[in-house]
């Protein structure tokens, strides 16, 4: 490539990086601005960074109905429980689809994959109506079970392809030595699956952490999650930029740090294990 081509390539790449990073850096920058400077135009670049917005958000000194830290706790609980539920269901299912021979196996796998097309905006209606009739609105299961379902097809497909790549001779040898199938899965398959389990859990966890529609519809206060809380920072009284960006930073930062640290695992998860 000519030096000009190289120069243009690099300029375009850095420009793309600026576009990608700008909204994220804007949030971070604004969250450290004193409240009275946050909305100033022209934008103020030299200011004394302050943690006041974070203190306000975490102590509840905002216009929202609930302390944001509580919502963050709800998000953590819902994310962990739905991911664990998903894993507990996905590992045996993936093993059956990869290793056990029975009629309808491939059709079942394809059906599981096809459930990803079900739009949450459609499934939320029956879940909302039935949860209201059973008095389950604002309880943990109405978020945990749907979130587990959202992640399941991807988890199962990823783990199935990972199990297929484990040489079957290892399992066979253990079976000859008298190990039961449960022992084989627990002691042999599971340890070899660890990287894929991490990928699958990361993606399922990200889906649950960021989910908005079900949380908006099915939670009132007892299980309200951070994404719903953030959407309440803009109201008819205007947007509190400082507290909004501080709340956004607190919510998004853990995911972004994990994504940066475990980049390959995240990409593997996002493509159902098709990209290693």
């Amino acid at each position: 490539m000519s030096w000009l081509g190289k120069l243009i390539t690099r300029v375009v790449l850095w420009l793309a990086l600026v576009i990608v990073m700008f909204p994220i850096l804007w949030v971070l920058l604004t969250s450290f601005k004193p409240a009275e400077l946050a909305q100033a135009l022209p934008p103020i670049w030299d200011f004394m960074p302050t943690l006041q917005n974070y203190r306000d958000v975490l102590s509840g000194n905002t216009y929202t109905s609930q302390v944001f830290g509580v919502l963050l706790n709800h998000t953590i609980i819902v994310t962990l429980s739905s991911t664990l539920l998903g894993l507990a269901a996905a590992v045996p299912a993936a093993y059956a689809l990869a290793r056990v021979k029975f009629a309808g196996r491939q059709a079942t796998a394809n059906w599981i994959l096809s459930t990803i097309m079900f739009p949450p905006a459609v499934s939320v209606i029956p879940v909302f109506v039935i949860a209201s009739r059973l008095g389950l609105t604002d309880t943990w299961p109405v978020l945990v079970v749907p979130y587990a379902a959202f992640g399941l097809p991807m988890m199962i497909w990823m783990l199935r392809s990972a199990i297929k790549q484990i040489p079957f001779e290892i399992e066979e040898a253990a079976m000859v030595d008298g190990a039961s199938r449960g022992q084989i899965i627990w002691h042999i398959v599971l340890p070899l699956l660890t990287p894929s389990i991490v990928s699958a859990s990361l993606l399922a966890g990200m889906l649950a952490w960021n989910e908005f529609l079900f949380a908006l519809t099915l939670s009132r206060s007892a299980i309200k999650t951070a994404p719903v809380g953030i959407s309440e920072f803009t109201s008819m009284y205007g947007t509190q930029w400082g507290t909004l960006t501080a709340a956004a930073t607190v919510t998004v930062a853990p995911i972004l740090l994990i994504a940066l640290l475990l980049r390959r695992r995240v990409i593997e998860g996002l493509t159902f294990g098709a990209v290693k």
Binding site: K6, L17, P227, I230, A248, V252, L260
Partner: peptide
Amino acid sequence: RKFPETNLLAALFILPLGVAPVVSALVFRV
């Protein structure tokens, strides 16, 4: 194309897909 900075750039390009859509939508709105 392998430049000295491409690995760093590729690593940072992962960030938008971790941002909650609600947050990115609010930021765009503001």
